[in-house]
């Protein structure tokens, strides 16, 4: 890993974010920080607000209260396309490829906001380098890929925006163990190439191994935050999320 916790500057800061779905308060004042070069993970049970936190950051849900600051700019009420342009992209929960576009077309959609052709070309090569499987399947439709390949494609698509902050929502969901290992290996590689990563996971063990710091979310609040290593040793975390006695 290229960096350790807290060395880089703060790249993203959430301060007291409250987000609602209708009248249901999904986030009850989330405060967290991501530093440049880090892998930070959000872990927690179903419905703890992990995905909502990501949706609040990228503008798909607008927080009712609180602020989200990215690289010194307040992005709390900015629309998603502006946030992508500022350098935050994500691989959404459930991957959500465009099912009838080819792998290549999907990757190109990731670069929708960009105009620098040579840069896009470079990033395409980079994605193919990270995921040689995608290069083999570039003419195949997104919907016909296996789950693991779809996840690779979704991560690749998010990388095509050349993000400063990459958000990954449950990249291990529904994948065979061998693919989960592979995906986490590549997450580490992407991070070592200099991209900051905010990782949402239910697979807390893998996530805490990959991350430098972690936040434990419980019913819309941050219950605990610490170094990833220390969180792994924390008795409560071990019992609740790692299934250890």
């Amino acid at each position: 890993m290229s960096t350790t916790a807290g060395n880089g500057q703060v790249i993203l800061k959430l301060d007291g974010v409250h987000t609602f779905y209708g009248t249901i308060e999904a986030l009850k004042g989330i405060t967290l920080e991501v530093h440049e070069g880090e892998v930070v993970t959000l872990i927690g049970a179903n419905g703890a607000g992990k995905s909502t936190t990501l949706r609040s950051i990228n503008g798909l849900n607008t927080p009712r209260e609180g602020s989200i600051v990215f690289q010194g700019k307040n992005i709390t009420r900015r629309p998603p396309h502006e946030i992508v342009q500022m350098g935050i992209s994500q691989s959404p929960e459930g991957r959500r490829l465009f099912p009838h576009m080819t792998v290549l077309e999907n990757l190109e959609m990731g670069a929708f906001q960009r105009k620098d052709r040579s840069g896009i070309r470079e990033d395409l090569d980079r994605v193919y380098g990270l995921f040689p499987r995608l290069a083999e399947r570039k003419g195949q439709r997104g919907g016909t890929l296996s789950g693991g390949e779809q996840q690779m494609c979704a991560i690749g698509r998010a990388l095509m925006a050349r993000p400063k902050l990459l958000m990954l929502d449950e990249p291990s969901m529904g994948l065979a163990p061998i693919f989960v290992e592979k995906i986490f290996e590549i997450i580490g590689e992407i991070n070592s190439q200099g991209t900051t990563i905010l990782l949402v996971e239910q697979n807390a063990l893998m996530a805490l191994d990959a991350a430098q710091r972690g936040y434990v979310l419980e019913t819309g609040k941050v219950a605990l935050t610490d170094d990833a290593k220390r969180l792994r040793e924390n008795e409560q975390v071990r019992k609740t999320y790692l299934g250890e006695e």
Partner: peptide, 21 residues
């Protein structure tokens, strides 16, 4: 045109890709 087709295929994903819906 590609943005239109992306919206037709998956509007939320299209939004997340930075297509101004």
């Amino acid at each position: 045109g590609r943005a239109w087709i992306a919206i037709r295929e998956d509007e939320t994903a299209a939004g997340a890709m930075g297509i101004p819906l």
